Simulated assay, not measured.
Amino acid sequence: MSLKSSVGGAGRRVIAVVVHRVWEWLRTHAEISPSTPAGRRFAYLGEGACIGFPTGAIYGEPWIRVGDHTLIGVHVTLSAGFVPGLDLGPDPIVTIGKACSIGRGSHIVGHKSIEIGDDVFTGPYVYITDQNHGYTDPDVPVGRQWPVNDAVTIGSGCWLGAGAIILPGTRLGRNVVVAGGAVVRGEFPDHSVIAGVPAKVVRRYDPKAGWLPPLPEVPLDDETLAQIAKMIDDGTAKPDEMAG
């Protein structure tokens, strides 16, 4: 006989109320903050910072720094190194700046260096890593080949949409918008919007002209480019007008 069938309706309601209240209490009191034992394991967990409960996998805390007033959502994985207990040297591996917000279910997995600036916001389920498996040897399964590390830098003020993947070697400038689901690798300038698989710049900011419209999906042909250049040379069109 199951527990559900052996307990009457009133009893089940009482159990449900107790379970829900305990769960709410845990959500409120089991988050990781600078004053908790788990928070003191970090290289730095800043004033007002917190990691929501339930957490994802968290290890390598002595090599993880989290800035003041940064909020990390529930089910977020934060890791430095392959497994717990490794000595990773004197320098931090994962650094998250001040006043950031990391969306639920995200993964930040560092082995060499991941630096996230201040005021960086992410949607849920964002994946950021500085390591990937090599595939140079065609006779060895990819998962068994030695991994390759390449540092990741995410500039202050960036926004990473839901499900974005930030691969090793990525360097984002300041205030970069990453579209949801984008797969990002490479260097991208300040004040740009990037999207796609692989990600590319689809919009950018010019100090004189402001935000330029989305770039065309199909590159302009040589004849059209020549006509535009002639119009600019003749003074019949200005570059900012062409952009708008």
Rank of each mutant, 00 (worst) to 15 (best):
residue 218 V to P: 02
residue 174 R to A: 14
residue 63 W to D: 00
residue 164 A to K: 00
residue 100 C to G: 05
residue 52 G to K: 13
residue 235 G to I: 09
residue 32 I to E: 00
residue 198 P to H: 10
residue 58 I to R: 01
residue 102 I to P: 00
residue 45 L to K: 00
residue 75 H to L: 13
residue 36 T to G: 03
residue 175 N to Y: 12
residue 236 T to K: 14
residue 233 D to M: 09
residue 183 V to T: 11
residue 213 P to V: 11
residue 49 A to K: 00
residue 237 A to P: 03
residue 210 G to A: 07
residue 60 G to T: 08
residue 232 I to C: 04
residue 50 C to M: 10
residue 65 R to I: 09
residue 115 E to H: 14
residue 83 V to I: 15
residue 161 G to W: 02
residue 196 G to D: 07
residue 188 F to V: 04
residue 161 G to N: 04
residue 74 V to N: 12
residue 202 V to Y: 04
residue 9 G to T: 13
residue 98 K to V: 13
residue 45 L to Q: 01
residue 165 I to D: 00
residue 186 G to I: 08
residue 131 Q to E: 14
residue 234 D to Y: 05
residue 70 T to R: 01
residue 117 G to Q: 01
residue 9 G to Y: 07
residue 112 K to C: 10
residue 109 V to S: 12
residue 30 A to W: 13
residue 128 I to Y: 02
residue 123 G to I: 01
residue 51 I to F: 03
residue 118 D to W: 05
residue 46 G to W: 01
residue 202 V to R: 04
residue 81 G to C: 08
residue 54 P to Q: 11
residue 222 D to G: 12
residue 237 A to L: 15
residue 1 M to P: 14
residue 203 R to Y: 06
residue 129 T to L: 06
residue 196 G to F: 06
residue 134 G to C: 12
residue 181 G to W: 03
residue 181 G to T: 07
residue 12 R to G: 06
residue 63 W to I: 02
residue 94 V to T: 05
residue 192 S to W: 00
residue 5 S to H: 13
residue 154 I to R: 00
residue 92 P to S: 09
residue 239 P to M: 12
residue 16 A to Y: 11
residue 118 D to I: 04
residue 31 E to C: 14
residue 144 R to I: 06
residue 19 V to N: 12
residue 149 N to C: 13
residue 141 P to T: 04
residue 196 G to A: 11
residue 117 G to T: 03
residue 90 P to H: 05
residue 149 N to E: 15
residue 192 S to E: 04
residue 67 G to E: 01
residue 21 R to I: 07
residue 159 W to T: 05
residue 11 G to H: 08
residue 84 P to H: 08
residue 148 V to C: 09
residue 211 W to F: 08
residue 43 A to F: 09
residue 13 R to M: 13
residue 92 P to H: 06
residue 7 V to Q: 09
residue 187 E to M: 08
residue 123 G to H: 01
residue 219 P to N: 10
residue 179 A to Y: 11
residue 104 R to L: 11
residue 122 T to G: 04
residue 210 G to D: 07
residue 124 P to S: 06
residue 138 P to W: 11
residue 50 C to Q: 11
residue 21 R to K: 13
residue 194 I to H: 01
residue 173 G to I: 03
residue 215 L to V: 13
residue 56 G to M: 08
residue 100 C to F: 05
residue 117 G to H: 01
residue 62 P to Y: 05
residue 224 T to S: 12
residue 129 T to P: 03
residue 29 H to N: 14
residue 65 R to V: 13
residue 99 A to G: 05
residue 36 T to Q: 05
residue 184 V to E: 01
residue 116 I to F: 05
residue 54 P to F: 10
residue 111 H to S: 13
residue 33 S to H: 09
residue 70 T to W: 01
residue 24 E to H: 13
residue 29 H to L: 07
residue 201 V to M: 07
residue 226 A to S: 15
residue 180 G to L: 04
residue 188 F to I: 03
residue 187 E to C: 11
residue 6 S to H: 12
residue 59 Y to K: 08
residue 241 E to H: 13
residue 57 A to P: 09
residue 193 V to L: 11
residue 188 F to Q: 00
residue 172 L to D: 00
residue 147 P to C: 06
residue 143 G to K: 10
residue 125 Y to A: 15
residue 175 N to E: 14
residue 98 K to C: 12
residue 95 T to L: 08
residue 89 G to N: 09
residue 123 G to D: 01
residue 184 V to C: 05
residue 43 A to Y: 11
residue 235 G to L: 09
residue 40 R to F: 06
residue 157 G to S: 04
residue 147 P to N: 07
residue 80 A to V: 03
residue 23 W to K: 14
residue 176 V to P: 00
residue 112 K to V: 10
residue 117 G to I: 02
residue 97 G to C: 03
residue 178 V to I: 13
